[in-house]
Design a protein around this nucleic acid. Structure first.
Lengths: 269, 269
DNA sequence: CGGCCGGCTTGACCCACGTCAATACGCGGC
DNA sequence: GCCGCGTATTGACGTGGGTCAAGCCGGCCG
């Protein structure tokens, strides 16, 4: 009940991080107030906080960010209807955001990787209109919004940064809208794989080999497709040689071809 | 070239207005700096600016908002790629936002009615990632973002208001995503009609009789459907008696039934 | 080690919606 | 009033991906 929790193992972090950092371990969980982990030395900060802040400003930011223990797979950060009090940054692991339709079905609205920020949907009416849960063991930073607002009035670049974050979320949503309304199953899946690949690159991970943290069902749900279709497209891509698929382990053999497909410039019948 | 224009006939305005106000007339167009139209006396302000501001604060806001002449049907406010410098509020008329896919097709991402704010997509990377054009003769208010940011640091409630606006845009986009990925043509169209009806209500216009400002093509594009499907659904709804359709003039005869359809609770075969 | 359960794959079938095409409507211009 | 063109309607037909129904694989627990 209540919120999910406020499990922030470390400090700030945001839109696509730098490095996967140590995976959430017990050691991290022990971190406390005086720990070495802070925005100032977080390796995700270059992505999460790409703004020039005075070190005193970073300290102020550090002060408001909450820590906590790691989330286990399936645990919620917040649920639809919870009062809104904070936005969150992924430090490690992966989360998904989703909402429920009136008839109770789930709609996945996004996947969040280390360095990315989520939970901004709740600002509008002071309560979350979606839920967020961990797809695997994850660690997050909680950024209380009220205090962030206060801080923003004193640090204009921080305010601008948050406007940018929200604007990016809007842009992403609109890209998904275009996908859903115009593109075929193959195009959507190619685009998602490329998106994950790009986000890995920014975290300095491999762009061509990675493990999908989400299930086929989640992928289908996110892209407006059924599990069966997702599975079939994966098989087709593999058969064509552009993709290696071994369960959740993905190898992109032919990024160029994948890009062609995603943009509809594919010539291969 | 350049921006579209910066045609703001009046002052502020935002998320769904209060009243349709005088339609854009030559008289409005003559309004100048010292004119009676300001945020303080704009009838849309209760919707556009639902925050308590000191009158001195309203004056400051007034000072930064640009005026201009009305836009004609088809004119752009901004285009994809234009540098971002302002957000806009609809004062009268209707506009659509859209982007182009890589292969040049249009994707309508939203319709904007009097009192609603648009153009926030550009904040993220300082340039617009969509275009906005007038569907009919319209008047808008331009709110230079840089100065708005400065002002927000001095008026915290204004900052919060803009965070809320952007959050609402995110929520709306996510609702559309759900529509596109889960709902049938009939459900999507029923939902759009109800949305327009609700927005009319907030402007104190009729909830059951109105003129659609956009073409069937735009509706289809927005909802991820073809013109033909839109037309067929309209005909079907009319045949079933729940809707009166006369070109762009719409009469909702059975809102309850429409609501049932939009939420998938329809029983009628 | 074996059995169970949840997630994934594959096949056969079907239907909502897209495509193509013909026709009708409505509005502005002359 | 008539012409012309863009927008809307309607019909006939095809298909991408949904639905239903079997398997299958792999991890976990006893």
């Amino acid at each position: 009940m209540q919120y999910g929790l406020r499990y922030a193992i470390a400090k700030f972090a945001h839109q696509v991080p730098n490095m996967s950092i140590v995976t959430t371990s017990k050691d991290d969980a022990r971190c406390h107030h005086d720990q070495q982990i802070s925005c100032a030395n977080c390796r995700l900060a270059t992505i999460c906080l790409p703004i020039a802040l005075e070190s005193t400003d970073i300290e102020r930011l550090d002060d408001i960010i909450q820590r906590g223990r790691p989330l286990h797979k399936g645990e919620h950060v917040f649920r639809n209807g919870d009062p809104f009090s904070a936005v969150y940054a992924v430090r490690s692991g992966t989360l998904k955001a989703y909402s429920l339709t009136d008839d109770g079905r789930e709609q996945v609205t996004g996947f969040y990787f280390p360095g990315e920020i989520f939970g901004m949907d709740g600002i509008g009416n002071n309560q979350h209109v979606s839920s967020a849960k961990a797809l695997e063991t994850s660690a997050i930073c909680e950024i209380p919004f009220e205090r962030l607002g206060d801080l923003s009035t004193r640090i204009p670049s921080l305010q601008r940064h948050f406007f940018q974050l929200m604007s990016q979320e809007i842009t992403q949503d609109q890209q998904l809208i275009t996908q859903l309304s115009k593109n075929s199953a193959e195009q959507r899946i190619a685009a998602l794989l490329l998106s994950i690949s790009a986000r890995n690159t920014r975290r300095q991970l491999s762009a061509t080999r990675f493990r999908l943290p989400m299930s086929r069902t989640d992928i289908g749900n996110y892209l407006g497709l059924t599990v069966e279709t997702v599975s079939r497209v994966f098989s087709r891509f593999q058969k064509l040689g552009m993709l290696g698929v071994d369960g959740k382990e993905i190898t992109i053999n032919d990024p160029a071809q994948l890009r062609k497909i995603s943009t509809g410039q594919d010539t291969t019948g």
